[in-house]
């Protein structure tokens, strides 16, 4: 028996009904047996895991890995997730799944050397969206002239430097670098919003 969809066993004062439930709230509900909360956790994690996985794995494989990680989390979160550190634990599982994916792929490649070309074709980037590219190029041209510090930091990043190395090179504090980057990002987004589609 539940009230407003939450089990009676759950202490209502832990949840502020006027705001969106946080991951922590959902976790508390799910641990007390709320299937709807469990579903919401799955949804929320899946979309975030997919985004993170796509940065490391191309194509549909990223979605599969994210789904796999979510399933593992749903199986184990009641028993294995450390209290108060759920996010770190969940992120660790995703990282392990990504690592497993790369291991499996290497094994597959060694077994079927001929299939590698097929894999590579699947892993290659989709054709770039020309419109996005045109807009971005136009805005970058403006930014390079208008915000030299941002352009300089971008350039160093593209040359492979990490933030701490860039700070040393530019002789600035990390906080200052993040301010430069986020200010540049805001200008870039403003410019991208203004760019008119042909």
């Amino acid at each position: 028996m539940t009230v407003r969809g939450f089990p009676l066993s759950y202490k209502a004062e832990h949840v502020n009904f006027n705001r969106e439930l946080t991951l922590e709230d959902l976790l508390t509900l799910a641990r007390s047996g709320d299937k709807a909360a469990e579903g919401k956790i799955f949804e929320r994690l899946l979309v975030r895991f997919t985004l993170i996985a796509k940065r490391r794995i191309d194509g549909d494989d990223a979605r599969d890995v994210a789904q796999d990680a979510c399933l593992t989390i749903l199986e184990k979160y009641r028993t294995e997730a450390p209290a108060g550190r759920f996010e770190a634990w969940a992120h660790g599982i995703l990282y392990n799944k990504i690592g497993n994916f790369y291991q499996r792929r290497e094994v597959r490649r060694s077994w079927h050397a001929g299939v590698v070309s097929g894999d590579a074709a699947q892993l290659s980037d989709p054709p770039p969206q020309q419109e996005l590219r045109r807009k971005l190029l136009g805005c970058i041209r403006k930014l390079v002239v208008g915000n030299r510090r941002y352009a300089r930091a971008l350039n160093l990043m593209f040359l492979g430097y990490k933030t701490n190395e860039i700070c040393v090179k530019l002789n600035i504090q990390p906080g200052h670098l993040y301010v430069i980057l986020n200010r540049g990002r805001r200008l870039l987004i403003n410019c991208l919003d203004k760019e008119v589609m042909p």
Binding site: R55, M157, Y161, K162, I166, G175, L177, Y178, L181, R185
Partner: peptide, 10 residues
């Protein structure tokens, strides 16, 4: 604050 540095993979 790390947002854009993360997006740029830096």
């Amino acid at each position: 604050a790390l947002l854009h540095a993360y997006e740029l993979r830096g």
